[in-house]
Structures are given as structure tokens and as C-alpha cells.
């Protein structure tokens, strides 16, 4: 039995089919890249898995448990964490408080939550900014806080929505290292939605390609970049020539 099994997911927004019969399986410990042009239905699929949307049909099986249509807080408690493409920049709480809220998912005790939050912040190299508020940090840092927050809920599967967009080269490289460490040291299975091709290709074990709501290809990064359909659908002439 696969770790996460998506079968025949359909999501229709009043005639606009965002996901059409999408199926795939993921094993524990994998890093999966989920790519596709704008409007391919990646984020919708994310939301269907996590529970922000209820799929019209199809099933999501996580660790042999049917989680289709559960609310996001339930899927989170089941072990799925996520980050958001756009972080709401809020002024109400400091970085460590944000992360503590994540930790409170698994504990009722404030002191435990606090020490767990500190641990996560250390792991991500955020300890120096823990007293800051989100609006006082640059975008790259804010995203990292979002990652820390999700990580503090101790997910077994972490879904990252465009976590690298807006980052420069060095920041992206750092993030790739971090994700690899997360995967290797903490054993977290990762699914990334990403636009930056180089990053997905270098970090992912496998890549799944969506186009017009359907899965058009699935395979190793090396195969995907050579695949004609994928190149046509998504990567475009330019990327194909340069590689």
C-alpha cells in the first residue's frame, strides 16, 4: 500500500474542470515535484488533498486511511502539513508564537510547545528573528516561518506551495539544502508545487506533470525534461533548446 494514494480526483468549478481524473501514488520518504503551467490545477489538487476543497469524485488515501473530504485541521492532525503560496503578513504574533501555534497541534502544554518551536526555529536557522513580527521580515524569511509553522505540527507529509518563488539564486540553493536535510534527517515526505524548474529538477526524486487539470506525465526528473509532451505543454521551446 502506498503512503499517499490519489485516485481519480475530479474537481469542477461550475463548468471549469480544475482537476480531471488525477491519480498517482507516493511512497514514504519521497520528494515529489508537482509541476505544470499556470492554471494547470496544481493548487486545486493541493487543496483537494488537504481538505480546503472537497473533490467532486475520487479518493485520497493517506496511510491506508480514507481522508477524502476531511477538513484541513483533520488532515493536519492525520499528519499532512502545508505551506501557502501567499503568506498573510500579519502583525499580531511574533515568529516564535507563530511556530508555537503549530506545535500546539500535538501538545497542550505551553512549555513543551515553546521548546519544540525553538527546536524547529534552530533547525531552519531562524532563531535570531524569533521575536520579530512577520511584517518586519523579508519575504524569503516569511516563507521560512510558514515552513517552520507547518513543520512544528510534526507532519509526515509536507506539501509546499511555491515555496521558492521570489527567492534569489543563493536563497534557492539554501532552501534546496534545507529540504534535502528535512527529508533525510526527519524523514518527512515532501510534495512541492514549483515554478522554478531548476529547483524542482534538482531536488525531486520524481516529478508529476499536470496540464489542463490532467496528469500528462510522471517520471524521473531526467526523463521528464526530455519528454516531448511535457516540453510542449509546459517547458516551452526555450527551455528545451537550452538543455
Amino acid at each position: 500500500m502506498a503512503f499517499l494514494e490519489i485516485s481519480n480526483i475530479v474537481k469542477d468549478f461550475g463548468g471549469l474542470v480544475a482537476n480531471n481524473n488525477v491519480s498517482f501514488q507516493i511512497e514514504q520518504g519521497e520528494i515529489i515535484g508537482l509541476i505544470g503551467p499556470n492554471g494547470a490545477g496544481k493548487t486545486t489538487l493541493f487543496n483537494c488533498i488537504v481538505g480546503y476543497y472537497k473533490p467532486d469524485s475520487g479518493k485520497v488515501i493517506f496511510k491506508e486511511k480514507d481522508i477524502t473530504g476531511l477538513r484541513p485541521f483533520d488532515t493536519n492532525r492525520a499528519g499532512i502539513g502545508r505551506t501557502f503560496q501567499v503568506m498573510k503578513v500579519t502583525t499580531g504574533m511574533s515568529v516564535i508564537e507563530n511556530v508555537m501555534v503549530g506545535a500546539f497541534c500535538r501538545t497542550d502544554d505551553r512549555h513543551t510547545a515553546q521548546s519544540e518551536a525553538s527546536e524547529v526555529l534552530n533547525f531552519l536557522g531562524l532563531e535570531s528573528v524569533k521575536e520579530y513580527h512577520l511584517n518586519e521580515l523579508p519575504i524569503a524569511m516569511q516563507r521560512k516561518v510558514g515552513l517552520a509553522r507547518a513543520l512544528a505540527t510534526k507532519p509526515e507529509l509536507l506539501m509546499l506551495d511555491e515555496v521558492a518563488s521570489g527567492l534569489n539564486r543563493t536563497e534557492t540553493d539554501e532552501l534546496v539544502l534545507l529540504l534535502r536535510r528535512l527529508n533525510a534527517e526527519k524523514g518527512v515526505t515532501l510534495i512541492l508545487i514549483e515554478h522554478i524548474m531548476e529547483m524542482v529538477m534538482s531536488v525531486s526524486h520524481r516529478v508529476i506533470v499536470l496540464d489542463y487539470g490532467e496528469k500528462i506525465e510522471e517520471g524521473l526528473p531526467g526523463e521528464i525534461v526530455k519528454n516531448e509532451d511535457v516540453i510542449k505543454a509546459y517547458l516551452g521551446e526555450k527551455y528545451a533548446k537550452s538543455h
Binding site: 485541521f73 504574533m93 508564537e97 501555534v101 497542550d108 505551553r110 507547518a150 505540527t153
Partner: peptide, 25 residues
């Protein structure tokens, strides 16, 4: 400083994020 206190502040800031952190809003 209770669990509920922290969770409420998160809800006030960002309900979607709160839900993704296991909070039954």
C-alpha cells in the same frame, strides 16, 4: 498563554493558516 489563547490569535490573524495547523476554528 494557553493553547486556546494562542490558537485564537492565529484564527484572528489568518483563518486558512490556522486550519492548516490543526485548529478546528
Amino acid at each position: 498563554r494557553s493553547k486556546l489563547g494562542y490558537q485564537l490569535r492565529m484564527i484572528k490573524d489568518d483563518e486558512d493558516a490556522a486550519e492548516s495547523l490543526g485548529i478546528d476554528i
